[in-house]
């Protein structure tokens, strides 16, 4: 499977307040032959574009005004339509400290891409979220991809399995 045929039917929404970053990401997504790319300059614009075009994947910056990336992720995850609220979200950020990455993860991102980005990391992340979906978790306090990346042995009661049967989206 080549990148061209893999990404050609995919649409991506890019949200970043830096015009250069938007231009760079647009160029890289074009090189990957992503079918459609939509560009937004802040969280508010991003949400509006998302509702109008329903892209398959969202790539968002963290620090923006009005409406930063964390707020955008929470609002996307809160959309009352399962297909829309479970779309993969890649956060691109220069804040790579543990607290910032955890904040992004707890907001409900699917993948984190640290700035400065490289062609290879963008390509890899996009392929990951397009090909290898993670289970989606809904609780009172969290709505987003399963934050446990590793399938390691667990001692005790698995409350997630006990609480809910798995549901497959059609």
């Amino acid at each position: 499977m080549t990148a061209q045929s893999l990404f050609e039917p995919i649409s991506v929404l890019v949200v970043d307040d830096s015009a250069y970053m938007r231009q760079l990401l647009l160029g890289l997504l074009n090189a990957l032959e992503v079918g459609k790319t939509f560009l937004g300059a802040n969280g508010e614009e991003g949400l509006d574009l998302y509702r109008r075009h329903r892209p398959d994947v969202v790539i968002t910056d963290a620090a923006m005004e009005p409406g930063d990336g964390f707020d955008l992720v929470k609002r996307l995850r809160a959309i009352d339509c399962t297909e829309m609220s479970t779309a993969p979200i890649i956060m691109v950020s220069g804040h790579t400290d543990v607290a910032s990455v955890e904040k992004a993860r707890d907001a409900g991102i699917t993948a984190f891409l640290s700035k400065p980005i490289s062609a290879a990391t963008l390509y890899r992340r996009l392929a990951e979220v397009v090909c290898y979906p993670r289970a989606f978790i809904e609780t009172d306090t969290y709505r987003g991809p399963d934050r446990r990346r590793r399938d390691t042995p667990f001692e005790g009661v698995d409350r997630r399995q006990a609480a809910a049967p798995q549901v497959t989206l059609l």
């Binding site: 409350r159 049967p165 549901v167």
Partner: peptide, 14 residues
Amino acid sequence: SQKGETRILKVPSI
């Protein structure tokens, strides 16, 4: 979700 339950959804591959 409102009842405090946990739900796990299998999301299909794009």
